[in-house]
C-alpha cells in the first residue's frame, strides 16, 4: 500500500453540505469538531473545498434546487469518495417526506455509503458513521481498480 492509499484513512478530510436541513444536524456536525468531541485529534478536518475532501457529509432532505449543487460537489471530489447521510431527513426525508419541494433522501440524487439516522443525529452517531465510511474505503478502492482494469 502506498502512502496515498493510507493517508485518507488515517486523516480523512470531510466536506459538509446542507441540502435542506433544519440546522439541527448541521450544528451537531460542527459540535463534533469542537472541544467536547474534538474529531481533529483523529486527523479529521473540515474543509471548504470539495477537491480536498475524502468524505462528503450531507445533512437534510434533498430538494429540487439543492440537488444540482449536491451533484456538482460530488463530481468535484476525487476518488475514492465516500458519502455519509446524516439525520433522518438525509436518510429518507423523515418528517418532511410529504413536503412538495422535497425529493426524499439524499440517495435519490447521489449514491450514499453510510446512513446515520436520528433527529437530530447525535455527535457520537456521526463520528461512528464516519468511522464506518473509513472502513469501507479499501473495499471501494478495490472496486474502482477492477473497474479501471476492465475499461483499459
Amino acid at each position: 500500500m502506498s502512502s496515498f492509499d493510507t493517508s485518507n484513512i488515517k486523516s480523512p478530510w470531510i466536506l459538509h453540505y446542507d441540502t435542506g436541513s433544519c440546522n439541527g444536524c448541521d450544528i451537531e456536525v460542527l459540535a463534533c469538531l469542537t472541544p467536547l468531541y474534538d474529531v481533529e485529534r483523529f486527523g479529521i478536518l473540515n474543509v471548504g473545498n470539495p477537491r480536498h475532501a475524502d468524505i462528503l457529509v450531507i445533512t437534510g432532505a434533498a430538494n429540487k434546487r439543492s440537488a444540482r449543487v449536491l451533484r456538482n460537489l460530488y463530481e468535484q471530489m476525487p476518488d475514492p469518495k465516500m458519502v455519509v447521510a446524516v439525520g433522518i431527513c438525509a436518510v429518507s426525508g423523515g418528517v418532511l417526506h410529504n413536503c412538495y419541494n422535497v425529493l426524499g433522501g439524499v440517495d435519490k440524487v447521489i449514491p450514499v455509503d453510510v446512513y446515520v439516522p436520528g433527529c437530530a443525529a447525535r455527535p457520537e452517531a456521526i463520528i461512528d458513521g464516519i468511522v464506518l465510511a473509513l472502513q469501507k474505503i479499501p473495499e471501494k478502492r478495490k472496486l474502482l481498480k477492477s473497474r479501471e482494469a476492465k475499461t483499459a
Partner: peptide
Amino acid sequence: LGYVHRGIEKAAEKN
C-alpha cells in the same frame, strides 16, 4: 435564496 426551501407551510395544512 431557495436552497433550503421544503414547503413546510403547505405540509402544515395537510397534517
